[in-house]
Amino acid sequence: MFEKRSIGLALVLPAALFVALGFLLPVGLLLAESFRTPAGWSLAYFTTFFADPLNQAVFLRTLRLGLTVTAVCLVVGYAAALAITGLGPAARGRFVGVLILPLMISPVARTYAWVVILGRTGLLNVLVLKLGLSDEPLRILFTETAVFLGLVQLFFPLAVLPLLSALENLPADVVPAARVLGASWLRVFWQIILPLTREGLVVGGTLVFVGSLTAYITPAMLGGSKVLMLETLLYQRVSVANDFVSAGVISVILIVMSIATNVLLRRLAAGRRAGGAHA
């Protein structure tokens, strides 16, 4: 650690100033505007916003999709991570590659594929009809189910990668030791593996949850105007009606939810820094 504070300050200052002026200031102004009504500072815009049944429905849908996508990603992701750690190093590396690849591909391309798959004449419906699972093609596109599937595919890697590193960091002898002492596999899992990988669950869960709350492309392309989420509602309010009041309110809600989730993450996984490529 070097002592000269002035040099240190001079090195951080450009980045800090850039972010402060070119980013924090405008975002701050945008957020502040949502609390400044003609009658003074108040929460009036928020009460008006939540009084509208459409807005309530969109808010609840966003929460519901965020929670279900996170739950599914974590449960399936955990099982997948367990299976991957059981593989040899070469196969493990290949799977990590398979997980990272989608993160690098344009989300527009990733989501567009689902339009082709989920349509009434799409791949999924062709299979459903051939297998006789239904007499009629299913209506999936422009429903919450389509958005759910798209989001799970988009964020699944973000759930698995932290779980994988948590599992790999397990002390090598804990599990065999417990087994030798006669603990059942299930008991080892509940009492040893799960608590020790809590951090991975928290990191992965946060990345997926925040990602789902703030996703734009997936609800826009697979949900349409009947399955609005907060981000698509925000875009619609601005682009269709120049309604910057609702946009500001939605911004505050999104930021509060993102920060709250992130703070929760830090509390639960104190000390460890998490990184991740956000889609």
Partner: peptide, 16 residues
């Protein structure tokens, strides 16, 4: 401060 942009949803950055 310098890592703040990562937790602000992109659409808000654009709008602001």
């Amino acid at each position: 401060i310098v890592t703040a942009p990562i937790i602000v949803p992109g659409i808000i950055v654009g709008l602001a």
